[in-house]
Computed example of a mutant assay.
Amino acid sequence: MNLKRIAVVTLCTLLCAGASAKGKGADNTLTTKEQKQGWKLLWDGKSKNGWKSIKGGPVPATGWTVENGTLTIADNNNKTSVGDIVTDRKYKNFELSVDFLYTDGANSGIKYFITEDKSGKISNVACEYQVLDNLLHPDAKLGHDGNRQLGALYDIFPAEIKTPAKAGEWNTARIVVNGNRVTHYLNGKKILEYERGSQQWKEGVARSKFSKRDGFGMAEEGYILLQDHGKKVSFKNIKIKEL
């Protein structure tokens, strides 16, 4: 291949790469197509705006940090000393997309239908898209048939994942809620679908740790929560489309 040909190929490669990156969009932004479809950012990639502490007040100054375009919970040696954070407002029917990266042995989660408890405080008990290192965290071996592993509806229904996610790599969780029908996705593939209130749901809740909680997971709307479970986990590209 002559020098002229090499130059043309190199230029094409650079232009194609640039076009691809432009089409995908930068982190923590919405493409024109996403905006037209009704997507909204739940996190701006720069501040802690739009979120609050489950304990009341703003997101803690320490523990949860904004670093390199990620919203990251620090490693606290599996001690939940900082606390979970939730969105400023509640959501009903929606499609939620969140990129996450977990470290070795990490445990976290993306919860939805979070509501206030009987005392008026925001509860941390609700439906949970489990974020877990299946290889190193002991919770992966507990529960029933893998219902505490990555992508599962925590302690109720397991996810069907053919290609395991790895610690230190970015993955995309997607949760679609349309009435009582809920679907979990991982990296674009459907891994779980269930219907709240169905017989299967009732049986799953009955054998879970939530069996004594009246009306568990049946709220019509709720906050979205990112969990602090004592190990470092990062989130970015947090966006939602209300249905």
Rank of each mutant, 00 (worst) to 15 (best):
N187K: 08
P158L: 07
T13I: 15
T31P: 00
F210G: 03
T115P: 02
G109D: 04
E195M: 15
E34K: 09
D84W: 14
N76L: 14
L11A: 11
K190I: 12
R181T: 14
I54H: 01
S211T: 11
V98G: 02
L14V: 12
I238E: 04
K46T: 15
A167Y: 02
A173Q: 03
D117C: 13
V177K: 00
G56P: 00
A173W: 08
I54N: 00
I73T: 02
L101G: 00
V66R: 03
V176E: 01
I122N: 00
S123K: 07
V8H: 03
E203K: 12
F113D: 05
N171E: 08
A126L: 11
P58N: 09
L71C: 03
N147M: 12
L243Y: 11
A140Y: 04
W51R: 04
N237V: 13
Y194L: 14
N77Y: 13
N124K: 10
W64E: 02
D99K: 14
K141F: 09
L42T: 04
S53H: 05
Q37N: 07
I122D: 00
S198D: 04
W201A: 02
D104E: 12
R89N: 09
K121R: 11
L42M: 11
S211P: 01
L186P: 03
Q37Y: 11
V125A: 06
K24Y: 13
R213C: 05
E67W: 07
T62V: 08
A173P: 03
N2Q: 08
N2W: 14
G120T: 11
A219T: 06
A17I: 10
Y102Q: 01
A17N: 07
F100C: 02
L226E: 01
N68I: 10
T183V: 10
M218L: 15
K55D: 13
A126E: 01
G179Q: 04
L132R: 02
T172K: 07
G23W: 12
K239C: 10
T65P: 00
I191K: 00
T70V: 09
A17Q: 05
A159D: 04
T10Y: 14
A19W: 09
A206T: 06
S108W: 12
G179D: 08
L132I: 13
G120R: 09
D155V: 13
K118T: 09
F100L: 07
R89S: 12
A159L: 05
F100I: 09
S123Q: 03
T70E: 04
N171I: 15
T80D: 06
G204C: 15
T65H: 03
V176H: 01
N68T: 10
A7T: 10
W51G: 00
K239E: 04
E193K: 07
C16S: 08
T80M: 10
Y154S: 05
E34W: 11
R89E: 07
W43T: 01
L225S: 02
R5V: 15
N134F: 12
E95I: 15
L71H: 01
K241L: 12
G38M: 15
K92D: 11
T115K: 06
N77S: 14
K40T: 13
T87F: 11
K121V: 12
S234H: 03
Y223P: 02
M1G: 05
S20W: 08
K24S: 06
C16F: 14
